[in-house]
Simulated scan of single mutants.
Amino acid sequence: MPDQVTPPPSMHWIVPFAASLSEPCQHALPRLADAKALPNLRRLLGQLQEVARIEGDEYALSMPHERVLAASMGWPDVDGQLPWAAWWAAQDGVKLTADAHWGLLSPGHWLMGRDHLTLLDPATLALSETESRALFEAVRDLFESDGWALIWGASQRWYASHPSLQGLPTASLDRVIGRNPDVWLTDHPQARTLRRLQSEVQMLLYQHPINDTREQAGLATVNSFWLSGCGPVPACTATPAHIQLVNALRAPMLADDMPAWLDAWAQVDNTVLKQALQAVDAGKAIALTLCGERHAVTLATAPAPGLGGRMWQSVKRLTSSRSGPDPVALLNSL
């Protein structure tokens, strides 16, 4: 009897920040144990099977969802060396020279606390294009005088090229937001240049007119940058058409806003996962990848059963509990 083969999915949803080891998230997760919480996810867990799992830890430079996306594009899985600068440049319509090594410069605010720094989410700065371009021009000479090439891509994304970026591992921006950036600066020999530039940019922007205006308006200033996603331009920078990244959980998780995170989960369940369940009920092959801080698990439609198997599944659907399996154990495993 030939082995059954799981059919390729017609749609694959990837959900980053499905869970976290953070204390606020660990306190919030039991709320999802309620039988009425996430009804569509519960039903999906009863009808899909685990087909893949990416293992890691919370200290890895790359996030699990980044590794899943990278695998879909055929990139080598090298921690901290996934070329997201090239991927984002393609989204921004920026042409990068293929024979150079590029990195993503994210202008941001390093919050000076009593004991340590904290990197704020650049998206929360609401940096306008005019502000971003002015700050970009302010630091351009500093970089270019050191042999770098800089390209403006978007308000939150600048692109930088330099020979020192070859083989340089960097932590994902999503890994560092809300944490001390100093901890995530690698001890790679080529990172010394990066640390020096970060210090010089801090001094250069300290009294920039844009920052003076923002400070007077009660807004966070741009006082540094984070470099990530270094590498040469890969052969493929296009996410496969059947893959959809679901980013609704990202912002509340990075802000440790657990009421908003729980609301976002309910919204994802009522929209994305409802669509996924409808596809399963229509007999389509789908995949769902849930990603946490450490691991990612991919669930997919089971191989098509024979007549007896279909009859058994019909009986199972009719007799099973509507609430389905408790998703908290799965989310805790991420």
Rank of each mutant, 00 (worst) to 15 (best):
L262D: 02
M1H: 15
R114W: 10
S161N: 06
P252R: 10
S224L: 04
F143I: 04
N40D: 09
P122G: 05
I54V: 14
R67Q: 11
M203L: 15
R133P: 04
A235G: 15
H295V: 03
E129I: 09
L245K: 05
A255K: 05
F143V: 03
S228E: 08
I243H: 12
R195S: 13
G80E: 00
L245T: 11
L104C: 05
G324K: 04
G231V: 00
R294K: 13
A217P: 05
V78S: 08
A217L: 11
T301R: 02
P122D: 01
A260W: 07
G74P: 03
K284S: 09
P234Y: 04
R294A: 15
P259A: 10
L245I: 12
S20C: 09
H65V: 06
W261L: 05
L82Y: 01
R179L: 08
N332W: 04
A302D: 07
D146V: 03
A60S: 12
M311Y: 09
E144I: 06
L44P: 00
D99K: 03
W75Y: 08
T237M: 03
E23G: 09
I177D: 00
R214S: 05
H101P: 02
N332H: 12
T239M: 12
M63W: 07
P2S: 14
W84Y: 15
N247I: 08
L219C: 07
E58P: 05
P30C: 07
L307V: 13
V315G: 11
P2I: 10
S161A: 15
A329I: 09
D256T: 07
M73D: 03
Y59D: 14
R250F: 04
E200G: 06
L194K: 00
V328K: 02
V94G: 02
G308H: 13
M1K: 12
A18M: 07
M1L: 14
K95T: 12
A18T: 06
A52R: 15
G93I: 06
W102F: 09
L197T: 02
D256E: 15
D281P: 04
R192T: 12
G153A: 06
L245R: 09
Q190A: 14
Q4R: 13
E137P: 02
T298P: 02
W102K: 01
E129T: 11
L104M: 12
A60G: 13
A154K: 10
S161W: 01
D182N: 14
P169L: 06
A300Q: 03
D121F: 07
A160N: 01
Q4W: 10
P76R: 09
D281H: 11
A279K: 12
A85S: 14
D99S: 14
S224E: 04
P169G: 06
G74N: 11
M11R: 15
R42Y: 00
L142V: 07
A33P: 06
V183M: 13
L48N: 04
L44A: 05
L245A: 10
N180H: 07
S333G: 13
R43M: 10
A149R: 13
W102I: 00
Q91F: 06
P83C: 01
A266M: 13
P252Q: 08
L82R: 02
L173V: 09
A134Q: 13
